[in-house]
Simulated assay, not measured.
Amino acid sequence: MAVYFSLFLVLATVVTGVVWVADKFYLAPQRRLKLADAIAERGDALSDEAKAKISEPNALTDTAVQVFPVIAFVLILRSFLYEPFQIPSGSMMPTLLDGDFILVNKFNYGLKDPVARNKFWENGLPERGDIVVFKYPVDPRIDYIKRVIGLPGDRVIYRNKSLYIKPACQPTDDVCPEFEQVVQDFESKGEYVDNGFELTRYTSNMPNKTHEILVNNNTLPRTAHYFNQAGTQRDEFVVPTGQYFVMGDNRDNSLDGRFWGFVPEANMVGEAVAIWMSFGFERGEDSLVPDWMPSWFPSSVRFSRIGGIE
């Protein structure tokens, strides 16, 4: 759907832009000449209404001229700077909740054309710990949002609900790094519930970024369903060149790289940087919205969630 909208936006900008240029450099001067000729021919006998009819563009041209700057601004903003997205699930809880509306910075990872998505300006690459929106590798028509865990060349192990990272060895390293466990500090339990089980909240201390995660200690790891990469153990992942390994912060409720593999750099859309609006959809005795209302209808505005994303 996003691809179709981008295509429509580009086409609308081109069409209205052509009309804008034609009106500015040809149609408008022609109308002014016609008005001057009419005034010279009829003088004071020419009414204001007749003058306006001669000098004003037709409805279609006028609409295109008025709309073009707005559409062009939206195209530039959405394609090269920031694009809004809605969080549709709880896979990134507690960092992002269902109902959060976020802004994605598309400039941080370089600029791509809005239709074919070919990069034409390098500006940076995802870093470990970034929350990224990307085209789902299994179906690029779908946008996913996860956190970058492994960079190209990294080795990542997710075993017994603990994360281990061995950063890629760089040419400047005298000694190549070894595996290090990402320390998870206990925060709370019971704030979030999944299928009747209380989720445990931890602070995950990644090498360059600290964030919170949720773990369901009542479920077994789904190792048998993990992505099967040749030459590695089932719970180990070696990130290929030019690709990234991503996971959801809600560890046991996220369809992420553990199950389908890696995200090519070309699939990256941008970095999630802020929540600009957040709606709650709770129902029950304390809700102001009756139960018979559709589930998509918000019951509250979570103003406290508006702001930057860690």
Rank of each mutant, 00 (worst) to 15 (best):
Y4P: 09
F8L: 15
V10N: 08
T13G: 02
V15N: 02
V19C: 02
W20K: 09
A22R: 10
K24R: 10
Y26V: 15
L27Y: 14
P29Q: 04
R31Q: 11
R31T: 05
L33G: 14
D37L: 09
R42T: 01
G43P: 03
G43D: 06
D44Y: 05
D48I: 03
E49A: 13
A52V: 03
K53C: 06
E56V: 04
P57W: 11
N58I: 14
A59N: 10
L60I: 15
T61E: 14
T61W: 08
T63L: 14
V65E: 05
V65A: 06
Q66S: 15
V74Y: 08
P88G: 01
D98M: 05
G99L: 07
G99R: 01
D100V: 01
F101L: 08
F101Y: 13
V104D: 00
V104P: 00
N108P: 07
L111E: 02
P114H: 00
A116D: 07
F120E: 02
E122K: 12
N123W: 03
R128T: 12
D130Q: 00
V132P: 07
F134G: 00
I142W: 12
D143L: 05
Y144F: 07
K146F: 02
I149Q: 05
I149S: 05
I149R: 06
P152R: 06
D154S: 09
R155D: 15
Y158I: 11
Y158R: 04
K161P: 07
L163I: 13
C169V: 00
V175G: 11
C176K: 13
Q181R: 13
V182P: 07
E191S: 09
Y192S: 02
V193Y: 02
D194Q: 14
M206W: 14
E212C: 03
L214T: 00
V215R: 14
T219E: 12
H225I: 13
H225C: 12
Y226L: 11
G231V: 12
F237L: 11
P240M: 12
G242F: 14
Q243T: 09
Y244Q: 04
Y244W: 11
S254P: 01
G257P: 05
R258F: 13
F262T: 00
F262D: 01
A266Y: 03
A266T: 11
M268H: 04
G270C: 01
E271N: 14
V273C: 06
A274M: 10
I275H: 02
W276E: 00
S278Y: 02
G280P: 09
G284T: 03
L288K: 15
M293N: 09
S299E: 11
R305C: 03
G308W: 15
G308D: 09
E310R: 04
